[in-house]
Design a protein around this nucleic acid. Structure first.
Lengths: 196, 196
DNA sequence: CATTTTACATACATACTGTATGTATGTAAA
DNA sequence: TTTACATACATACAGTATGTATGTAAAATG
């Protein structure tokens, strides 16, 4: 029973949406494809028609989550003209976005484990990490950053932000933890600021 | 056929040893318990007698890996008297240990995903992270560190080191990447050093 | 209008975890 | 020395999950 283009897209979107909920709430390993398709009033045949495998489905979900987060980071960072403030705003936005809607599980825990670090990193590269690297590169070109390996610093900061997000997420007073982290990041960045 | 204490311990050690190899090489999800026990010339009954579940086995393996790494970090850090140098040495030792023997997969990828972040963090707490926190606390008490949340800084640094280790691990020239990171960490720590 | 393609459903093969049960052996107390 | 029980496994099986092969109805295509 062939559907038209719009119906097909709706099917895919529905599967992605429901899958995202299951992955966030139960995690990748404890999510059964059967449950997803039942909720979507479909069968596993439909799912396997649109996605190569369980991993393929997860990867598609991860991609959309990453896109969402990256957009928020970019929007927030753009609110300032000062490169240092942009960086701080971006970091803060990233941590905030990773927290909300419990994106952290897909983004930071199952992501690397399910797809493998290389694949996960490749995807992250095209979203949040790209923004971070470009920002740092720009700052160094403008002579505002001490001479340090941009690659090393990008990974270092990225990892720090990821773990910070996970830490903040489970703190009773998350907003205070976020404040402490933001303040600390400002202090840290001072170490890299090139004196005029 | 009851064995004596020593034989029993040997069985457990053998299972742990083989399991560790499988987890490092194939990852948690792609490791079949059946393969492990066959290699140990046992059956799954034996494994389930000594370990509660697949997760239980993994947790036991993770614990031993963490212990190994923590010992190396402690040994290295103790080689200096200066607290700042201790910190730098410790960071470097951690990254090095996470790399070698491909510990990274158990330690940093499957660890958090399989056991959940809270449980993983609780375990890490008692090993590498404890060292890091104590070091930072000591430094702050000695007035060598700017007034910043130790908790926030500990998590931030820990995450940064973890991601750096994963990054370095897959670089063609790992030793150079390690150098760049070490150099960057020194620079970064400057930002936190309290002026005399 | 005939044919092909698409979007699914259905049925089944395969694989793996976990559990229930059986059994031989060691140990401690009666 | 017998008895009672715990321990260390083996064996068999149940349950559940992914993935694959095949069937089918309807839209698209020529």
């Amino acid at each position: 029973m062939k559907r038209n283009q719009e119906e097909t897209n709706a099917t895919i979107r529905k599967l992605l949406e429901i899958a995202r909920l299951h992955f966030t709430e139960r995690g990748y390993a404890d999510t059964a494809l059967e449950d997803i398709v039942q909720e979507a009033q479909l069968t596993r045949g439909a799912l396997y028609h649109h996605f190569r495998s369980k991993k393929g489905l997860f990867q598609a979900v991860l991609e959309s989550v990453q896109q969402e987060v990256a957009e928020k980071v970019e929007t927030q960072a753009a609110k300032s003209e000062d490169v240092w403030e942009q960086l701080a705003l971006g970091c803060r936005a990233f941590v905030g976005a990773a927290l909300e809607a419990q994106n952290k599980r897909i983004l930071l825990l199952d992501g690397p484990a399910v797809l493998g670090w290389e694949e996960w990193r490749r995807m992250d590269e095209q979203h949040s990490m790209r923004l971070l690297r470009e920002q740092l590169q720009g700052m160094q070109q403008q002579g505002q950053l001490k001479p340090v390996s941009i690659e090393a610093l990008t990974h270092f900061l990225s990892g720090a932000l990821n773990e910070s997000a996970l830490w903040i997420a489970q703190m009773a007073d998350a907003s205070q933890a976020l404040e402490e982290t933001a303040q600390m990041i400002s202090l840290l960045l001072e170490g890299f600021r090139k004196p005029e």
